[in-house]
């Protein structure tokens, strides 16, 4: 992938995020190229803050750095971040120090019984069901952020043809492992939860496992491909083919 000269050059700002946090804003738009810079910054923060580092929350364009204000005052933390950013920007190619993230293939059974919005998405896109599946499964996505629930990975960018808004009324109960789309993003639900995304199918992957090293299957920067399988294969790999009700219901969750 090649980029224009200035396309993904960071324009950092350090913003207040409370007594124990600074939000480093590196970019103003979502771009796959942001991931390498944000990943490089996160690693440098880990090295530079050491014991004073409490948490890091990377997202599409930002990195929230949470520190212990008793070990490092907010002002000292800000100065440390400013130094890190100066070094980072002086580095000609932080991307080269970044591994491209792990690659995952998520076996997915696309079917209206487990993907109750598949047909509506097809109508919206004026495509056949098969074409919708081919389109969704036809590209490799990157994980931009985790949030909403443990192990819930926001992936993109989805093909424009499949761009549909969230449901007007979110479902109260989305089954675990549901594969979903909203806007130009796709995701799979690691656990049963409320949700307003459009459901296309179900995967066999174990997305969040407290007994696994690292807990979450997917991490920011990882690459993900959905692999269509038939019902028999889906079930052979442990998939739960229990159909869900197709009618969205329940109260509005944000």
């Amino acid at each position: 992938m090649s980029h224009g000269m200035n396309r993904n050059q960071p324009t950092p700002r350090i913003e207040s995020a409370g007594l124990d946090g600074w939000l480093v804003r590196l970019f103003s738009t979502i771009d796959v190229a942001n991931l390498a810079w944000l990943g490089a910054l996160a690693r440098r923060c880990e090295a530079a803050f050491g014991e004073a580092l409490v948490d890091l929350v990377p997202s599409y364009t930002t990195l929230l750095v949470v520190f212990d204000p008793l070990r490092l005052s907010p002002e000292a933390a800000r100065r440390r971040l400013a130094d890190l950013l100066a070094d980072l920007l002086a580095d000609p190619a932080p991307e080269q120090e970044t591994e491209a993230g792990e690659f995952h293939e998520l076996l997915t059974w696309y079917d209206p019984s487990v993907g109750p919005d598949l047909e509506r998405v097809a109508q919206h896109a004026n495509m056949s069901l098969e074409a919708v599946i081919d389109c969704h499964a036809g590209q490799t996505y990157r994980v931009f952020a985790l949030g909403f629930a443990p192990g819930f990975a926001f992936m993109g960018l989805l093909d424009r043809r499949l761009e549909v808004p969230r449901l007007d009324t979110p479902r109260q109960r989305v089954p675990v492992n549901s594969v979903a789309i909203a806007g130009r993003q796709t995701a799979a639900y690691p656990a049963v939860s409320p949700g307003g995304w459009n459901l296309l199918g179900r995967t066999t992957a174990r997305l969040f496992d407290r007994d696994r090293e690292g807990f979450s299957l997917l991490r920011v920067g990882d690459r993900v491909r959905f692999v269509p399988v038939d019902r028999a294969t889906f079930e052979r790999h442990g998939g739960d083919a229990t159909p869900m009700e197709t009618r969205p219901r329940g109260r509005a969750y944000e």
Binding site: V57, L64, V66
Partner: peptide
Amino acid sequence: ISEGIGLGAVQVPPDGQPIALLNDRQ
């Protein structure tokens, strides 16, 4: 664009009524 939110963040959704986010926030 969604970004990390710290303890105590006071967000203001379009209805104009602030929400202070506590320990179990997203």
